[in-house]
Protein backbone atom coordinates (compact mmCIF):
# COMPACT_ATOMS: atom_id res chain seq x y z
CA UNK A 1 0.00 0.00 0.00
CA UNK A 2 1.51 3.24 -1.13
CA UNK A 3 0.39 6.71 -0.21
CA UNK A 4 -1.27 8.34 -3.15
CA UNK A 5 0.57 11.32 -4.66
CA UNK A 6 -2.02 13.02 -6.78
CA UNK A 7 -5.16 14.43 -5.18
CA UNK A 8 -8.43 12.53 -5.66
CA UNK A 9 -10.80 13.66 -8.34
CA UNK A 10 -14.13 14.62 -6.79
CA UNK A 11 -17.19 13.02 -8.24
CA UNK A 12 -19.92 15.24 -9.66
CA UNK A 13 -21.81 16.64 -6.70
CA UNK A 14 -25.23 15.74 -7.96
CA UNK A 15 -24.18 12.14 -8.44
CA UNK A 16 -22.23 11.51 -5.24
CA UNK A 17 -25.04 9.75 -3.44
CA UNK A 18 -26.01 7.78 -6.54
CA UNK A 19 -22.42 6.62 -6.96
CA UNK A 20 -22.44 5.18 -3.43
CA UNK A 21 -25.71 3.40 -4.16
CA UNK A 22 -24.33 2.25 -7.52
CA UNK A 23 -21.29 0.79 -5.75
CA UNK A 24 -23.61 -1.13 -3.41
CA UNK A 25 -25.99 -2.19 -6.18
CA UNK A 26 -28.90 -0.30 -4.69
CA UNK A 27 -29.91 1.96 -7.57
CA UNK A 28 -33.33 1.65 -9.15
CA UNK A 29 -33.45 0.69 -12.83
CA UNK A 30 -33.86 4.23 -14.18
CA UNK A 31 -31.18 5.71 -11.93
CA UNK A 32 -28.85 2.82 -12.78
CA UNK A 33 -28.93 3.46 -16.53
CA UNK A 34 -28.44 7.22 -15.97
CA UNK A 35 -25.47 6.55 -13.74
CA UNK A 36 -23.85 4.11 -16.15
CA UNK A 37 -24.32 6.53 -19.04
CA UNK A 38 -22.69 9.28 -16.97
CA UNK A 39 -19.74 7.09 -15.92
CA UNK A 40 -18.85 6.46 -19.55
CA UNK A 41 -18.15 10.16 -19.99
CA UNK A 42 -16.90 11.31 -16.57
CA UNK A 43 -13.35 10.51 -15.46
CA UNK A 44 -13.85 12.06 -12.02
CA UNK A 45 -16.82 9.85 -11.21
CA UNK A 46 -15.01 6.79 -12.54
CA UNK A 47 -12.05 7.61 -10.28
CA UNK A 48 -14.34 8.04 -7.28
CA UNK A 49 -15.93 4.68 -7.96
CA UNK A 50 -12.50 3.03 -8.30
CA UNK A 51 -11.47 4.55 -4.98
CA UNK A 52 -14.55 3.14 -3.26
CA UNK A 53 -13.86 -0.31 -4.73
CA UNK A 54 -10.30 -0.15 -3.43
CA UNK A 55 -11.00 1.33 -0.01
CA UNK A 56 -14.34 0.15 1.31
CA UNK A 57 -13.63 -3.61 1.42
CA UNK A 58 -10.59 -2.84 3.59
CA UNK A 59 -12.74 -1.31 6.30
CA UNK A 60 -14.28 -4.65 7.25
CA UNK A 61 -12.52 -5.92 10.36
CA UNK A 62 -11.51 -9.54 9.81
CA UNK A 63 -11.60 -11.14 13.20
CA UNK A 64 -11.76 -14.92 13.23
CA UNK A 65 -11.73 -16.12 16.85
CA UNK A 66 -10.56 -19.69 17.51
CA UNK A 67 -13.03 -22.53 18.27
CA UNK A 68 -12.27 -22.28 22.00
CA UNK A 69 -13.64 -18.73 21.91
CA UNK A 70 -16.99 -20.00 20.62
CA UNK A 71 -17.12 -22.81 23.19
CA UNK A 72 -16.58 -20.23 25.93
CA UNK A 73 -19.14 -17.95 24.30
CA UNK A 74 -21.82 -20.65 24.38
CA UNK A 75 -21.00 -21.64 27.96
CA UNK A 76 -21.14 -18.03 29.19
CA UNK A 77 -24.37 -17.47 27.32
CA UNK A 78 -25.99 -20.47 29.02
CA UNK A 79 -24.87 -19.17 32.44
CA UNK A 80 -26.29 -15.72 31.69
CA UNK A 81 -29.57 -17.27 30.52
CA UNK A 82 -29.73 -19.29 33.77
CA UNK A 83 -29.36 -16.12 35.80
CA UNK A 84 -31.92 -14.27 33.70
CA UNK A 85 -34.43 -17.12 34.02
CA UNK A 86 -34.07 -17.11 37.84
CA UNK A 87 -34.46 -13.37 38.09
CA UNK A 88 -38.08 -12.30 38.76
CA UNK A 89 -39.59 -9.23 37.16
CA UNK A 90 -39.58 -6.21 39.49
CA UNK A 91 -43.31 -6.31 40.02
CA UNK A 92 -43.12 -9.92 41.17
CA UNK A 93 -40.42 -9.03 43.71
CA UNK A 94 -42.65 -6.33 45.21
CA UNK A 95 -45.72 -8.56 45.18
CA UNK A 96 -43.70 -11.16 47.09
CA UNK A 97 -43.42 -8.78 50.03
CA UNK A 98 -47.18 -9.03 50.45
CA UNK A 99 -47.30 -12.81 50.36
CA UNK A 100 -50.42 -13.88 52.30
CA UNK A 101 -49.86 -14.83 55.95
CA UNK A 102 -53.49 -15.07 57.20
CA UNK A 103 -53.77 -14.32 60.93
CA UNK A 104 -50.98 -11.81 61.44
CA UNK A 105 -52.07 -10.01 58.29
CA UNK A 106 -55.64 -9.76 59.50
CA UNK A 107 -54.51 -8.53 62.90
CA UNK A 108 -52.22 -5.96 61.29
CA UNK A 109 -55.02 -4.81 59.04
CA UNK A 110 -57.42 -4.49 61.93
CA UNK A 111 -54.90 -2.47 63.95
CA UNK A 112 -54.28 -0.20 61.01
CA UNK A 113 -57.98 0.44 60.58
CA UNK A 114 -58.36 1.20 64.25
CA UNK A 115 -55.45 3.64 64.18
CA UNK A 116 -56.88 5.40 61.14
CA UNK A 117 -60.33 5.60 62.71
CA UNK A 118 -58.95 7.07 65.92
CA UNK A 119 -56.80 9.60 64.07
CA UNK A 120 -59.32 10.89 61.60
CA UNK A 121 -62.54 10.18 63.51
CA UNK A 122 -61.47 12.02 66.68
CA UNK A 123 -64.08 14.74 66.32
CA UNK A 124 -66.94 12.29 66.20
CA UNK A 125 -66.33 10.76 69.65
CA UNK A 126 -65.63 13.78 71.86
CA UNK A 127 -68.66 15.47 73.49
CA UNK A 128 -69.40 18.76 71.95
CA UNK A 129 -67.92 21.53 74.02
CA UNK A 130 -70.13 24.38 75.07
CA UNK A 131 -70.31 27.20 72.72
CA UNK A 132 -67.70 29.72 73.52
CA UNK A 133 -69.05 32.62 75.48
CA UNK A 134 -69.04 35.87 73.73
CA UNK A 135 -66.31 38.00 75.29
CA UNK A 136 -68.40 41.10 74.76
CA UNK A 137 -71.15 39.65 76.90
CA UNK A 138 -68.68 38.93 79.67
CA UNK A 139 -67.60 42.53 79.67
CA UNK A 140 -71.12 43.86 79.58
CA UNK A 141 -72.68 41.64 82.27
CA UNK A 142 -70.90 43.20 85.23
CA UNK A 143 -71.74 46.62 83.88
CA UNK A 144 -75.35 45.59 83.53
CA UNK A 145 -75.36 44.35 87.11
CA UNK A 146 -73.91 47.64 88.26
CA UNK A 147 -76.55 49.52 86.31
CA UNK A 148 -79.22 47.52 88.08
CA UNK A 149 -77.52 48.33 91.32
CA UNK A 150 -77.48 52.00 90.50
CA UNK A 151 -81.10 51.96 89.45
CA UNK A 152 -81.89 50.24 92.78
CA UNK A 153 -79.96 52.95 94.51
CA UNK A 154 -82.05 55.55 92.76
CA UNK A 155 -85.21 53.93 94.02
CA UNK A 156 -83.77 53.87 97.50
CA UNK A 157 -83.04 57.57 97.24
CA UNK A 158 -86.58 58.09 96.11
CA UNK A 159 -87.84 55.92 98.97
CA UNK A 160 -86.20 58.27 101.42
CA UNK A 161 -87.88 61.14 99.69
CA UNK A 162 -91.12 59.29 99.65
CA UNK A 163 -90.82 58.58 103.37
CA UNK A 164 -90.05 62.21 104.01
CA UNK A 165 -92.97 63.28 101.98
CA UNK A 166 -95.14 60.73 103.64
CA UNK A 167 -94.09 61.93 107.11
CA UNK A 168 -94.93 65.47 106.32
CA UNK A 169 -98.35 64.50 105.04
CA UNK A 170 -99.23 62.60 108.22
CA UNK A 171 -98.24 65.66 110.27
CA UNK A 172 -100.71 68.03 108.69
CA UNK A 173 -103.78 65.93 108.82
Amino acid sequence: MVARDKPALNACRNLEEDLVLYYYGELSEGALSNCEAHLKNCEACRASLAEMRSLLPMTAAHDEPPPTFWNDYSREMRQKLDLAADRKPWWQSIAGLFAPIPMPALATGALLLLALALTFGKGFWQPSSPAPVDDTLLEVLPMAERLEFFSDMEILDNLDLLETLGGQGRGTA
Binding site: A3, R4, A8, E16, V20, E51, M52, M58
Partner: peptide, 20 residues
Protein backbone atom coordinates in the same frame (compact mmCIF):
# COMPACT_ATOMS: atom_id res chain seq x y z
CA UNK B 1 -30.37 5.15 5.48
CA UNK B 2 -29.16 6.33 2.06
CA UNK B 3 -28.12 9.66 3.55
CA UNK B 4 -26.30 7.94 6.45
CA UNK B 5 -24.51 5.67 3.99
CA UNK B 6 -23.48 8.47 1.66
CA UNK B 7 -22.12 10.59 4.53
CA UNK B 8 -20.28 7.66 6.07
CA UNK B 9 -18.62 6.72 2.78
CA UNK B 10 -17.67 10.34 2.07
CA UNK B 11 -16.13 10.75 5.53
CA UNK B 12 -14.21 7.48 5.29
CA UNK B 13 -12.87 8.33 1.85
CA UNK B 14 -11.57 11.62 3.19
CA UNK B 15 -9.99 9.96 6.24
CA UNK B 16 -8.46 7.08 4.35
CA UNK B 17 -7.64 8.73 1.00
CA UNK B 18 -3.93 8.08 1.49
CA UNK B 19 -4.57 4.31 1.46
CA UNK B 20 -6.75 4.16 -1.63
Amino acid sequence: VKVHLHRAVTALRQSLAEFA
